[in-house]
Amino acid sequence: MTQQQNDTNERFERGWQALAAIDGEAGTRVIDQLADIAPDFARYIVEFPFGDIYTRSGLDLRQREIATIAALAALGNATSQLKVHIEAGLNVGLSRDEIVEVLIQMAVYAGFPAALNGLFAAKEVFAARALQQAA
């Protein structure tokens, strides 16, 4: 195995562990859904954001998810990804109140429609999680 292949495998392993810890089943579903259409893109997602960025030491996972939730809400067109990262925020220790406050903050910088869309996405995630925990 070449050094480049070894480095790529280490990035993938590091990324897969981070993805599992942060996104849990939701992250695995995203990767699985790409397997038949864009398996290389699925690998890039595991290696770059999760293997390289999420594992950096500059921010903890809670801080990274706050930034991610804010960015996705501000985009206004990434509801599916926003829901995954709201769930991820809960997985890494953000409270529902913290997530709601991040989304309310987006009204100032991204507008009320983006904040509303984010809050409705959060409401769906919170409800689904409550059902899972009740089962």
Rank of each mutant, 00 (worst) to 15 (best):
A78W: 00
P39N: 12
L82G: 01
A42G: 15
I86R: 01
Q33E: 14
E25A: 13
G93N: 13
E10W: 03
E13I: 07
E10P: 00
Q105L: 13
Y109T: 10
K83W: 00
A121E: 02
T68G: 02
I31Y: 03
E101P: 10
G93L: 14
L119G: 04
I45G: 07
A18D: 04
A121S: 10
A18T: 05
P113F: 04
T28H: 01
R14V: 05
G27I: 08
L75K: 03
G89M: 08
L59R: 14
V92G: 11
G24M: 12
A71V: 10
Q17V: 05
E13A: 15
L72C: 04
L19C: 12
A70P: 08
G51R: 14
L90M: 10
L19K: 09
R43H: 07
K83C: 05
L116Y: 05
I104T: 03
Q4G: 01
D40E: 15
L94T: 07
V100T: 12
A135I: 08
I104C: 04
Q3F: 01
A21R: 15
G51I: 09
T2G: 14
A114P: 00
R56L: 06
E10D: 11
A71F: 09
W16N: 14
T28I: 02
A38Q: 06
F112K: 06
V108C: 11
Q105C: 09
R56Q: 14
V108P: 02
V108R: 11
G58P: 08
V125N: 03
R29L: 02
D60S: 08
R56K: 11
N117E: 13
D7T: 02
P49V: 03
A127F: 05
D36V: 10
Q132S: 06
I86E: 02
F41G: 05
L19V: 06
P39S: 10
P113H: 08
H85C: 01
I86G: 02
V108G: 01
Y109L: 10
V84E: 08
I99W: 08
E98S: 09
I104Q: 04
A26D: 14
Y44D: 11
Y54L: 12
F12P: 06
Q3Y: 01
T55R: 10
L61I: 03
A130G: 04
L72Q: 05
I37V: 15
A20M: 13
P113W: 03
D97P: 04
F41C: 08
V84H: 11
S80E: 06
Q63I: 00
A130W: 05
S57A: 14
A88D: 05
D52E: 15
Y54A: 07
N117W: 02
N9P: 00
F48H: 15
W16P: 00
F41E: 07
I31L: 10
D32V: 00
